[in-house]
Simulated assay, not measured.
Amino acid sequence: MHLLVVEDNPSLLNTIVQFLSDEFEVDQANNGEDALYLAMKNIHDAIILDVMIPEIDGFEVLRKMRKEGIRIPVLFLTARDSLEDRVKGLDSGGDDYLVKPFQAAELKARIRALLRRSGSLTTDQTIRYRGIELSGKEREIIVEGEPIKLTAKQYELLEYLIQNKGAILTKEQIYDRIWGFESDTTIAIVEVFMHYLRKKLEPFGYHADIKTIRSVGYMLNDE
């Protein structure tokens, strides 16, 4: 699971990223402009968003996201604890609201609840597409009742495609999601891994479900 944490206090940001990193892949931003830029890539499973951040406040970041159709679940994390602020946060499209100070265990629990509700994290850690079943807990894959072996990146690539079936994913989105902004590989790696993933699925006929959108990216057929 891939999270974005937005917080302008360097110490708190570092603390949050550290305790989330043992369970999630975490990107970070410390101002509204950077937060909006990363959010618009639409590569995250959830966003933890402070309200009082420089340049653009958290409410406005979320408003712009929702206007552009970005439906990533958002948890507001803020010291503003008035009822008016809570209502404003939820009415602006936020999915949850946690007031500082907070306990790390509660933040993680709320993130997992957001992911379950959004479908990014199911209660049994399993996602399905036609005759394909991915077990997130064991990172196993069953195709038409037969277990097959995928590398870690191939698994993440197939998982990302299934989670976004019917939607076009650009090569940039896939690269940022699977390899990350700081990877020392190039975007060409996406085509290489897509080729090998199709090869693994070809005996079952599912390779044809992954469509190449010329000069843009890829799309997994909607069921």
Results as ranks from 00 to 15, higher is better:
His2Pro: 06
His2Gln: 15
Leu4Phe: 11
Leu4Ala: 07
Val5Thr: 05
Val6Phe: 01
Val6Leu: 13
Val6Lys: 01
Glu7Trp: 11
Glu7Tyr: 11
Pro10Val: 06
Ser11Glu: 07
Leu12Phe: 07
Leu13Glu: 15
Asn14Gln: 07
Thr15Ser: 10
Thr15Leu: 08
Thr15Met: 14
Val17Cys: 08
Gln18Cys: 04
Leu20Asp: 01
Asp22Phe: 07
Glu23His: 08
Glu23Val: 05
Phe24Trp: 06
Phe24Ser: 02
Glu25Trp: 00
Val26Asp: 00
Asp27Arg: 00
Asp27Gly: 03
Gln28Lys: 10
Gln28Cys: 09
Asn30His: 08
Glu33Trp: 15
Asp34Thr: 06
Asp34Ile: 00
Ala35Phe: 12
Ala35Pro: 04
Leu36Trp: 08
Tyr37Ser: 09
Tyr37Asn: 13
Met40Leu: 10
Asn42Thr: 03
Asn42Phe: 03
Ile43Met: 00
Ile43Phe: 03
His44Cys: 11
Asp45His: 14
Asp45Phe: 01
Asp45Asn: 04
Asp45Ala: 14
Ile47Tyr: 10
Ile48Tyr: 04
Asp50Glu: 05
Asp50Ala: 15
Val51Glu: 11
Val51His: 11
Gly58His: 07
Glu60Gly: 04
Glu60Ile: 08
Leu62Tyr: 00
Arg66Glu: 13
Arg66Trp: 14
Arg66Pro: 08
Glu68Thr: 15
Glu68Asn: 11
Glu68Pro: 08
Arg71Val: 06
Ile72His: 06
Val74Ser: 13
Leu75Glu: 00
Phe76Asn: 01
Leu77Ala: 05
Thr78Val: 04
Thr78Asp: 01
Ala79His: 04
Arg80Phe: 11
Arg80Val: 08
Ser82Leu: 14
Leu83Tyr: 12
Val87Trp: 07
Lys88Phe: 01
Gly89Asp: 15
Gly89Trp: 02
Gly89His: 03
Asp91Leu: 08
Gly93Lys: 03
